[in-house]
């Protein structure tokens, strides 16, 4: 079992870790599927508070968009596996986690060319 945190913006992985006002938290079972999930609304967007939340939740995995090096290093030092630079909807990120195919910098979002 491992706990996963994904800062979100509406239905997407938040483009920036420090500006996320919502966090999706899921508990991933041994088979990979999520057995428990909830969403927490943060009182304010703050990278520091988000780090505290991740640690207080005892999360082992963070999936996020852009994150500053200092927060990345801090979380890695705290033994959190960080998949950063992910461009995805929450659903596609969860699916990739369940399938074990998620990588840092993954682009899982559908592209539209309307220019």
């Amino acid at each position: 079992m491992r706990r996963v945190v994904i800062p979100v913006r509406e239905t997407e992985v938040a483009p920036r870790f420090d500006l996320a006002a919502e966090v999706w938290i899921g508990l991933q079972g041994p088979e990979g599927s999520f057995v428990e999930e909830r969403t927490v609304v943060l009182p304010q967007a703050s990278a520091d508070h988000l780090c505290q939340l991740i640690l207080s939740e005892g999360a082992q995995v963070l999936v996020c968009g852009g994150i500053e090096q200092k927060y990345y290093e801090y979380l890695v030092w705290k033994k959190v596996r960080v998949y950063d630079g992910v461009i995805a909807t929450l659903a596609s990120a969860k699916k990739a986690l369940e399938e074990g195919t998620l990588t840092p910098g993954a682009i899982l979002m559908a592209r539209h060319f309307t220019g």
Partner: peptide, 23 residues
Amino acid sequence: TGLSDPEARGLPCRHVVRSNMCS
């Protein structure tokens, strides 16, 4: 941005530019 043109094309700009103004 660190993203190449082919990687970025078709994506919402907030995920490519990742500016603090986006949200």
